[in-house]
């Protein structure tokens, strides 16, 4: 009797295990930022505010940061626990996209700075010149191959 039980349980367990495996994938967060063909220059983590940001640039931004054709976007996300790996944070909700456009420098003006805010009603924009400087001076991460 015991003999049969062990096997019944084993067979049942196998069936349950294979059913569980077919369960729907968890809800994957949709991609909220469209890179429009821009590539990653670097990534910055702000542990204090639980945020992670990726700096994107167009080809001109990679060639020479201060030329008028250069365009930068700093995309900031809230960091959240990685559901599949305890020991890791992953980018979660999109919080803001800051854009630095160098075009106005062609006529001797300051770069254009703007910020789009998402999911963060209490956000107060910082000084444009300070943010432009922060974005412009972020060092490029070392990658083994060029993005363009």
């Amino acid at each position: 009797m015991r003999f049969i039980n062990v096997f019944t349980v084993a067979v049942l367990a196998f069936m349950i295990a294979s059913c569980m495996d077919k369960k729907e994938a968890p809800a994957i967060r949709p991609f909220a930022f469209n890179d429009s063909g821009m590539r990653v220059i670097t990534t910055v983590i702000n542990e204090k505010d639980n945020e992670v940001a990726m700096l994107y640039g167009n080809k001109a931004a990679f060639d020479n940061r201060s030329q008028p054709e250069a365009l930068f976007k700093l995309v900031t996300y809230r960091e959240q626990d990685n559901k599949f790996w305890f020991g890791s944070y992953i980018n979660g909700e999109l919080l803001r996209v800051e854009t630095v456009n160098m075009q106005p420098t062609a006529s001797g003006q300051a770069p254009a700075y703007s910020v789009d805010v998402y999911n963060q009603p209490a956000f107060r924009p910082a000084d444009a010149a300070a943010r432009t400087n922060f974005i412009q001076t972020l060092d490029r991460a070392w990658y083994p191959c060029d993005p363009y």
Partner: peptide, 20 residues
């Protein structure tokens, strides 16, 4: 891969690495 879209970025605290 440099021309592909970014899927995610992680910051590990079980070691001292960060990833894209």
């Amino acid at each position: 891969f440099r021309q592909w879209e970014v899927m995610s970025t992680t910051s590990r605290f079980d070691n001292t690495t960060m990833r894209v």
